[in-house]
């Protein structure tokens, strides 16, 4: 069970002279999977970047265990919270084992030496993501799905209670999307890791998340269980799209069917 709490209070944030988040409050449920959904440019990624300390808020704050995250030393935050950015870049020629080992960075100071515990953490991360057999391969030779698993392994090697992911399934084909989400669910079930992720696909979000957060125009529109949030009214408000919601026959969670202008019975 996660021992750390993360919450957002009256958050105002943006880039340059553009304000993207206009006063947002959110309590992340510890030990649960939260998915943030919304249309393009609604501020999902900005929210995640603010929550992970990458972006300094204009007003309001993000609290990690009751302390303002932007005033904490980066290393301390990184020992508790991992983040997978949207499109991370791997240095040319770096091997999988080397990249995943970088996840141990926050646990080392200038003078500390690599320890057997570090080897064990890296190995466990490779095993959890089933990338052990890729360990000596170069990251740039891997397929998109493999590469994403390796990046997740790096975040796992960080051994944090909180894990934030910005669109971890983008650019993956459907089988790899499911694989990544299954992997995150395993992690949540086995270690009680709190997962917060931005997801594009509403139906996958509803299926895998315990808690859905829907955003419109830099504000929180609705949050709660998938059943409470994934309704036809909310889909219209968030995406401007007509839809029907039916129970997903495989999971029992709600499932959204878009209604367009053509091919309607």
């Amino acid at each position: 069970m996660s021992r750390h709490s993360l919450s957002v209070h009256g958050l105002v944030a943006g880039y340059g002279d553009r304000t993207i988040l206009h006063g947002l409050d959110l309590d992340v449920l510890p030990g649960r999977i939260t998915a943030i959904v919304g249309a393009n440019a609604c501020g999902k990624s900005t929210l995640l970047r603010s929550m992970s300390r990458l972006l300094t808020p204009r007003a309001g704050q993000v609290l990690l265990d009751g302390k303002a995250i932007h005033k904490m030393p980066p290393r301390r935050v990184a020992q508790v919270m991992g983040l997978l950015p949207q499109s991370p870049t791997a240095p040319e020629g770096i091997t999988v084992a080397d990249l995943v080992s970088r996840g141990r960075h926050p646990h080392h100071g200038i003078l500390s030496r690599w320890s057997p515990a570090d080897d064990a953490a890296v190995a466990a991360a490779l095993e959890a993501t089933r990338t052990v057999e890729l360990a000596e391969r170069a990251v740039d030779e891997l397929s998109g799905g493999q590469r994403q698993r390796v990046w997740i392994a790096m975040a796992l090697a960080q051994q944090t209670d909180l894990l934030l992911l910005d669109e971890p399934t983008t650019f993956l084909d459907i089988s790899h999307q499911v694989e990544v989400l299954d992997l995150l669910t395993d992690l949540n079930h086995r270690r009680g890791t709190t997962v917060v992720m931005v997801l594009h696909d509403l139906n996958l979000a509803a299926r895998y998340a315990d808690h859905l957060v829907a955003m419109v125009g830099g504000r929180l529109h609705a949050q709660g269980t998938p059943e409470a949030v994934l309704t036809a009214e909310n889909v219209r408000a968030v995406f401007g799209l007509d839809s029907r919601i039916i129970p997903d026959p495989t999971s029992g969670r709600p499932m959204m069917l878009p209604i367009g202008r053509h091919r309607m019975a």
Partner: peptide, 23 residues
Amino acid sequence: VSRARDLESLRLGDDTAAALGTN
């Protein structure tokens, strides 16, 4: 040289470096 490890983490991109605790 004393900052070599932090410098090396910048090769992963600024966001990933920050997420790994590099200032």
